[in-house]
């Protein structure tokens, strides 16, 4: 029967909330679900993102649901919720941390993976990838190539060394780990 459905909660786990407590976000446990965060959220009033619900799901340990949900990425990190939360829950930072966990589980948006590739290959999320950008710099009386990693190959190598060192390349599937990655939740 199509009308039969349930999202009953039968188990509450501490795993996810403990991860957040260990990361220093203790205030999350004191969230009273007042709704100031959702009420302030510019994304929430045009998407399905309900910041408050997200916090509740973390408290109840609904890990798979939280990390696989696309809504986690609808937040523009404007920090209004964090500033207004009466309990001092660092809401935006919690969302950023959850994103870290989601990425570890393999949940990433395709355009973001592309960004990581550019970061690894050039040291910039938005690199000079067409001649017109050099010409535009010249037009505005600046050096054709900026004094960033674009002009210092050694610096670019340093970035890659670091990204390998923190295993960013493995995490996001770039550099030596680049392959046709089947992104979950993309």
């Amino acid at each position: 029967m199509e009308i039969l459905e349930t999202n009953k909660i039968t188990e509450i786990s501490d795993d996810l909330s403990n991860l957040l407590r260990d990361a220093g976000y203790l205030e999350l446990s004191a969230c009273i679900q007042c709704g100031t965060c959702s009420g302030s959220c510019p994304s929430g009033r045009r998407t399905a993102l309900r910041t408050r619900s997200l916090m509740k799901k973390v408290q109840l340990g609904l890990k798979e649901e939280v990390l696989s949900d696309k809504e986690l990425w609808f937040c523009s990190t404007c920090y209004t919720c964090l500033e207004r939360c009466p309990r001092g829950v660092p809401v935006t930072d919690v969302i950023i941390y959850l994103r870290n966990l989601a990425v570890q589980e393999g949940y990433m948006q395709a355009p973001h993976i592309a960004l990581c590739k550019m970061f690894y290959n050039t040291g910039h999320g938005v690199p000079i990838n067409e001649e017109k950008w050099n010409k535009l710099r010249e037009f505005h009386k600046l050096s054709s190539v900026p004094p960033t990693t674009h002009n210092y190959p050694k610096a670019e190598k340093e970035i890659q060394t670091l990204l390998k060192s923190t295993e960013f390349d493995k995490l996001t599937g770039v550099g030596d780990y680049e392959e046709k990655k089947d992104e979950k939740g993309g």
């Binding site: 990425w73 523009s76 990190t77 950023i96 941390y97 994103r99 870290n100 990425v103 990433m108 973001h112 960004l115 990581c116 970061f119 999320g125 670091l162 990204l163 923190t166 960013f168 995490l171 996001t172």
Partner: peptide, 11 residues
């Protein structure tokens, strides 16, 4: 911050 911090805070 909007992208890379969300992927890995340590990096």
């Amino acid at each position: 911050p909007g992208v890379f911090r969300g992927f890995d805070i340590d990096t």
